[in-house]
């Protein structure tokens, strides 16, 4: 059962359905956004980490809608990201599209790919579907390797918006931040709207959804399309950020990372993908700094520097998920409940 904070009354349905439903959370969110806006001043050289987190959070948002809210497991999310990255590269390099047009066009292209890939999901379900998407992942990688003529990398021009060329990490960060916030808000709104209800209805009991008049094929294909659209945006950002893309960056490992992110963040929470991306990338970066520090003290560990990172990463994930299988969002929700009730136990 849900616990409502005392003394915070709602007098309209609009208030009741708000995403940030109390003054305290609105204040907290405002501070979070302010902190992110000022990030170039406090993050220093780690601004690149925020860029990475933001880009992957956008992609993970899409997968969250597909897997968390619609219940379709996809092991091919990075393939959509790849399609987005290469489309964006092509559009801006060969066709000289400005970024502000290339980005939505890219998203539209990947949306269409997503819809097509989603069509078989009416018949192929669950883990079978996961493997079908895995096949799509491999086929896409393969096609891209051959289309780009081997393992070499593709260069991507920098973003130019109205004569302003985005060159530094800090400048790029604001592009990422705007897209990130918009994408996150869009996903959170979708979840509470009729689309979100329909997705969850399809996820939890498909025959009941049919009885409610919901076309399973439409909503599954739509979920795949939206997820792919998000991945396309992430891919486009990634391409323009790195300026050099290879198919390696979007391999099966990246697809699995995406799934890990949304599970760690919390599958059925609009915050999940963001928390997951932040956690995974911060942990990975933290270990990269931490490991040499350990080596400086214990040089004997030198041989296992790289694997040590992998081991600690794995152990952290295992510990976190054993502690709270619902992910970080569930941990936060429990914390929130404690705060709401404090100083009483219930």
């Amino acid at each position: 059962m849900s616990v409502r904070p005392a003394g915070d009354f709602k007098t309209s349905y609009v208030q009741d359905m708000a995403i940030l439903d109390t003054r305290l959370y609105r204040l907290g969110f405002a501070m979070l956004v302010a902190g992110l806006l000022l990030a170039p001043w406090w993050a220093g050289r780690f601004i690149f980490l925020l860029n990475t987190i933001g880009i992957y959070a956008v992609g993970a948002c899409g997968l969250g809608l597909l897997t968390g809210f619609t219940g379709q497991i996809s092991l091919g999310h990075a393939a959509f990201m790849a399609i987005g990255a290469y489309s964006s590269a092509f559009l801006s390099q060969a066709l000289r599209f400005p970024f502000l047009i290339a980005l939505p066009v890219t998203s539209l292209i990947t949306f269409l790919f997503g819809v097509v890939v989603g069509l078989p999901s009416l018949r192929i379900k669950g883990l079978y579907l996961a493997i079908a998407t895995l096949a799509f992942q491999f086929l896409t990688e393969y096609a891209l390797i051959h289309a780009t003529g081997g393992i070499g990398s593709t260069t991507v021009p920098p973003i130019v918006i109205g004569g302003w060329t985005v060159r530094t990490d800090r400048q790029f960060y604001y592009i990422v931040l705007v897209v990130w916030l918009a994408a996150g808000a869009f996903a959170a709104n979708l979840v509470r709207s009729r689309i979100g209800l329909a997705f969850m209805a399809v996820r939890d009991r498909d025959y009941a959804a049919q009885v409610l008049g919901l076309d399973l094929l439409y909503y599954k294909a739509l979920a795949f399309g939206i997820a792919a659209g998000y991945a396309g945006i992430a891919g486009s950002l990634w391409a323009h950020y790195n300026r050099l893309i290879t198919t390696e960056q979007f391999n099966i490992g990246a697809s699995i990372d995406y799934v890990a992110m949304i599970v760690i963040g919390g599958l059925t929470s609009a915050w999940g993908p963001h928390l997951g991306s932040a956690f995974v990338w911060s942990l990975s970066q933290g270990l990269q700094i931490f490991t040499p520090a350990v080596l400086a003290v214990f040089p004997a560990f030198g041989k296992i520097a790289t694997p040590l990172r992998e081991i600690v990463f794995g152990v952290t994930l295992i510990a976190l998920l054993i502690w709270e299988p619902g992910g970080l969002a569930m941990l936060l929700r429990k914390l929130k409940r404690k705060l709401d009730l404090w100083p009483f136990a219930y």
């Binding site: 849900s2 869009f186 996903a187 709104n189 979708l190 709207s193 009729r194 689309i195 979100g196 209800l197 329909a198 969850m200 209805a201 939890d204 009991r205 025959y207 009941a208 959804a209 009885v211 409610l212 008049g213 919901l214 739509l222 939206i226 059925t268």
Partner: peptide, 29 residues
Amino acid sequence: ALYPGMSVLNNIMTGRVIRMRSGVLACGV
């Protein structure tokens, strides 16, 4: 055949989904 993980409110709300007309973009905004 309800949705056990959803609230009573949202369960009944799913019955209204086909009566709602807003498109995907409108829902996202």
